[in-house]
Amino acid sequence: MKHHQMAAAALVFLAAGCAGTPAYGPAEGSGFGYREQAIETTRYRVSYKAKSPIEAEDGALRRAAELTRQKGFDHFTVTARNVDRERSASPRSSVGIGGSTGGRRSGVGLGVSVPLGGSGSESATARLEIVMGNGAKPDDPRSYDAAAVLSNLGS
C-alpha cells in the first residue's frame, strides 16, 4: 500500500512541476509565448515571454529561426537584443498587536509577518530585432544558422 501512495505522490509532484512552465507557442491569454512583427521584408521584431530569462532568450531565438525558415531564408542576424525581468507584487510585511483579559490575568501579543519569497511570480521577456538572409551565414557572432538553431533548441 505504501508503494502505491508514494507513486501517486510522485506523480502529483511531477504534474505540479510541469504545470508551472507554459509550453512553447504563440502568446495568448497568459501572455507567455512568442510574438513577432514585420518591420521590412527581411527585418522582424521577435519577442518571447517565459518564466526565466534563459527560457525567454531560447524561445526568442527558436522563434526567430522558425520565422527565418518559414520566410525562405537560411540565416538571421540579431541587430538588437534585450531581456526584461518582471516580478509581480508580493504581500507586504505587516505587524499586528492584540490583547486579552481573563480572570486575574491579561496579556498583550505582538505578531510580525515577513514574506520570505516564493509568494510573487517572476517572468522575463526577450526581444530580438533580426535581419534574415540567404547563402552562407556571415562570420559574425550575432548571426545564426536557422537550421542549426532549430536542431539545438527545437522540440
Rank of each mutant, 00 (worst) to 15 (best):
D140Y: 01
S90F: 05
Y48F: 05
G96D: 15
L110W: 06
N134G: 13
I97S: 13
R35G: 01
G33M: 02
C18Y: 12
S106C: 07
A8I: 07
S113L: 09
R43A: 13
E36C: 03
R142L: 11
L14M: 15
L116A: 08
L128S: 02
M6H: 13
H75V: 08
A80V: 04
S119K: 12
A124D: 09
I54S: 14
V108E: 04
T42L: 10
V108G: 05
S90K: 09
D84A: 08
E28Q: 14
G29V: 15
A9L: 08
S90I: 03
G96T: 15
S123Y: 03
R69T: 04
Y144I: 01
A7R: 10
M1Q: 14
F13I: 08
G17A: 10
A89R: 10
P138W: 03
A148T: 14
S30N: 12
V131K: 06
V46R: 00
R105I: 13
S94Y: 05
E66I: 07
G17V: 07
D145M: 02
Y34N: 00
E122M: 06
A38S: 12
E40P: 08
R87F: 01
A15T: 13
L128N: 02
G118N: 03
T42Q: 15
T41A: 15
I54V: 14
H3I: 15
S151R: 02
M1W: 04
A126D: 00
T42V: 14
D145L: 03
F32H: 05
A126I: 00
E28N: 13
M132D: 03
L11Y: 09
R142G: 06
A89H: 07
H4T: 04
G133A: 08
G17N: 11
R81G: 02
A19K: 03
R35I: 00
K2D: 09
T41P: 14
L61V: 01
E28H: 14
E86P: 10
P141V: 04
L116Y: 09
I54G: 10
A147S: 11
P22F: 05
N152A: 11
Y24E: 05
Q70D: 12
D74H: 11
S47V: 01
M6S: 10
N82D: 12
G29F: 15
S100Y: 13
F73N: 09
A64S: 05
R63N: 02
E66A: 01
L128Q: 02
R85W: 04
D58S: 08
R104Y: 13
M6V: 07
L67K: 01
R43W: 03
G135S: 08
L14S: 14
T101L: 12
D74L: 03
S94K: 10
S143Y: 01
T68Y: 00
S106D: 03
T125S: 05
E40C: 12
P53G: 05
G72C: 04
D145T: 06
A7E: 10
E86Q: 15
S88Y: 05
Q70L: 11
V108P: 04
G107F: 08
Q5N: 08
G33T: 06
D139N: 09
S94I: 05
A64F: 02
R45A: 09
A80R: 06
Y34Q: 00
A136E: 11
R104A: 15
T21A: 12
S47H: 00
G120F: 07
C18V: 12
P115K: 02
Q70E: 10
P22L: 07
E66C: 02
S106I: 06
S88I: 03
G72E: 03
